[in-house]
Amino acid sequence: MSADWGPVIIAVALFILLSPGLLFQLPARTRVMEFGNMSTSGISILVHAIIYFCILTILIIAIQIHIHF
């Protein structure tokens, strides 16, 4: 019996990629979107959290990604 690592790997990868300011920031301080500015705001954190939740839910519940080692 092996553990299902799919949700863990997907969650960690999305958390890293969707960190506000790392790759992009939506909404940015001066524009709608900025790339690689490494700064953040409260509304940006909220928007990225909603995007993270939606993508994670789609990948894990709807598509049912499973990774067994």
Rank of each mutant, 00 (worst) to 15 (best):
residue 20 P to V: 10
residue 22 L to Q: 04
residue 14 L to W: 05
residue 41 S to M: 01
residue 40 T to G: 05
residue 64 Q to R: 14
residue 21 G to C: 14
residue 51 I to T: 07
residue 59 L to K: 05
residue 52 Y to P: 06
residue 39 S to Y: 14
residue 13 A to F: 02
residue 41 S to H: 02
residue 59 L to V: 11
residue 54 C to M: 12
residue 64 Q to L: 07
residue 41 S to K: 00
residue 58 I to D: 02
residue 57 T to M: 06
residue 17 L to E: 06
residue 66 H to N: 04
residue 11 A to E: 03
residue 38 M to T: 12
residue 58 I to R: 04
residue 26 L to K: 00
residue 36 G to P: 02
residue 37 N to R: 14
residue 23 L to V: 13
residue 8 V to W: 07
residue 18 L to D: 05
residue 46 L to T: 08
residue 38 M to P: 06
residue 32 V to L: 14
residue 32 V to W: 13
residue 49 A to Q: 10
residue 9 I to N: 02
residue 31 R to T: 14
residue 24 F to Q: 01
residue 8 V to Y: 08
residue 29 R to F: 10
residue 42 G to K: 03
residue 46 L to G: 12
residue 37 N to Q: 14
residue 51 I to A: 13
residue 63 I to T: 09
residue 48 H to Q: 05
residue 60 I to W: 00
residue 25 Q to N: 14
residue 11 A to Q: 02
residue 13 A to P: 01
residue 29 R to T: 11
residue 7 P to T: 00
residue 12 V to T: 11
residue 52 Y to E: 11
residue 24 F to W: 03
residue 10 I to N: 06
residue 52 Y to M: 15
residue 34 E to N: 14
residue 24 F to T: 02
residue 25 Q to E: 09
residue 40 T to E: 07
residue 11 A to G: 10
residue 41 S to C: 03
residue 42 G to T: 04
residue 24 F to V: 03
residue 52 Y to I: 12
residue 20 P to G: 08
residue 58 I to T: 09
residue 59 L to C: 09
residue 55 I to S: 07
residue 16 I to F: 09
residue 51 I to E: 03
residue 56 L to T: 08
residue 58 I to L: 15
residue 41 S to F: 01
residue 17 L to F: 13
residue 59 L to W: 04
residue 57 T to F: 07
residue 34 E to Q: 09
residue 10 I to Q: 02
residue 26 L to F: 08
residue 47 V to H: 00
residue 26 L to W: 04
residue 53 F to N: 08
residue 64 Q to C: 13
residue 37 N to H: 12
residue 14 L to S: 10
residue 29 R to C: 06
residue 7 P to S: 02
residue 26 L to Q: 00
residue 21 G to Q: 08
residue 36 G to R: 11
residue 50 I to V: 12
residue 15 F to G: 15
residue 55 I to A: 13
residue 17 L to V: 09
residue 14 L to N: 10
residue 16 I to L: 07
residue 50 I to M: 03
residue 66 H to F: 01
residue 24 F to R: 01
residue 37 N to L: 15
residue 8 V to Q: 08
residue 39 S to K: 14
residue 12 V to W: 06
residue 23 L to R: 04
residue 25 Q to C: 10
residue 37 N to G: 14
residue 21 G to A: 11
residue 9 I to E: 00
residue 20 P to T: 13
residue 36 G to T: 09
residue 36 G to V: 08
residue 67 I to W: 04
